[in-house]
Simulated scan of single mutants.
Amino acid sequence: MLLKDYLREAIKESGFSEVDIQKTPTGTRVGLHVTRPGIVIGRKGSGIRDLTKVLEKDFALKNPQISVIEIPRPELEPSVMCNRMSQHLARGTAFRRAVMWTLQTIMEAGAMGVQITISGKLRGERSSFEKHSKGVLPRAGYQAGVIVSEDIAHVETKMGLIGVRIRIAKKEKYIPEFELKGRKAAPKVVAVSVEEKEITEVEILDESQIDPTKPRTESEVIEIEEKLIEKVETFEDVEEELK
């Protein structure tokens, strides 16, 4: 838990999702699931070297061997979307606009269903909560454990602490009761492994090889989304039009 909290802040710009730890006779295998592996690796593996020292010294992991795993569709990862939504709230975006935008983004990415719960001091001194759902989302039983994944994030605002919980049902993890016609095969996850002996061979692309139209960090993604969120229509906007 402490390691995951540290990585959320240390490699936030890479779109960190989760970490897998496996103990082996020769050391500890640490798998980092991120949306942008290049940021974690760093130029000539400098990021991996620094992170390895921290894991070995501060978290007492024996001979950590870090592998960076790219997430093919970050919009279907609850942890990534929780982090993005919490950053929108921290920047002052209206919580309902942020919720509607996140719902729309997740469903357009190909989710079967999604539920977003936001709680805390949303509009006044008293704490409250709201739940927003879209699509098909099993909520209990064996089906929910197989299909649904979730994550929780907390963000400090001027009003107080706000909690965000996102639950996503993925089509790829269907069971017979929820089988979908025309289902496509799930994309394979590409792993980029960087060990001590391979670090000298890893380099980041030159600036000329990077597409300037695509965001390179999570902060750039948030800045682009902020302009689009302003166009999202909420229940309050519809109510004003009816008046």
Rank of each mutant, 00 (worst) to 15 (best):
R96D: 15
Y142K: 15
I118W: 00
G42P: 06
E156P: 01
G141A: 10
G47L: 00
K171H: 05
I69E: 09
I69Y: 12
E172Q: 13
I69W: 10
K57W: 11
S119L: 02
R165D: 04
M100C: 05
S119V: 03
A111Y: 10
A98V: 05
G45R: 05
R43N: 14
P72Y: 00
K171F: 02
L61Q: 09
G160M: 09
T102G: 10
A98H: 05
K44H: 03
Q87I: 02
V164K: 08
G163K: 04
Q65A: 13
K57Q: 15
L61T: 05
W101D: 01
K57E: 15
P64T: 13
N83R: 02
K53R: 13
H88Q: 07
E70T: 11
I41F: 01
L161P: 03
S79D: 06
I116V: 14
R123M: 12
R43A: 11
P74K: 06
F59Q: 05
K44Y: 00
I41S: 03
D50L: 07
R49W: 03
I71W: 00
K131W: 00
I69P: 00
S119K: 03
P74T: 02
V80T: 13
P72Q: 04
A98N: 09
I175K: 02
V99Q: 14
G163E: 14
K158N: 03
K53L: 13
P138A: 07
T93K: 01
I66T: 09
I66G: 11
T52M: 00
M85I: 10
K158R: 03
T105F: 04
S119M: 03
L161D: 11
R91E: 05
S128C: 09
P64G: 13
M85P: 12
A94E: 14
K158S: 06
V80F: 15
C82N: 02
I118K: 01
V99F: 08
K173I: 00
E56P: 03
V136I: 12
V164C: 10
G145M: 08
L137Y: 07
R84Y: 06
M85R: 05
E125R: 14
R96Q: 15
I168G: 12
V164I: 11
M159P: 01
Q104D: 15
I147T: 14
V114M: 07
E150S: 15
Y174A: 12
V99T: 14
K173A: 10
L103G: 00
L55T: 00
E70W: 06
K121M: 08
G45C: 07
F59A: 04
A111Q: 08
V164F: 07
M85K: 08
W101I: 01
Q115P: 09
R84N: 02
E156M: 12
K53S: 03
N63L: 02
E75F: 02
G124R: 01
P138K: 06
R126A: 10
Q115T: 13
T117K: 02
F129D: 11
G42Y: 04
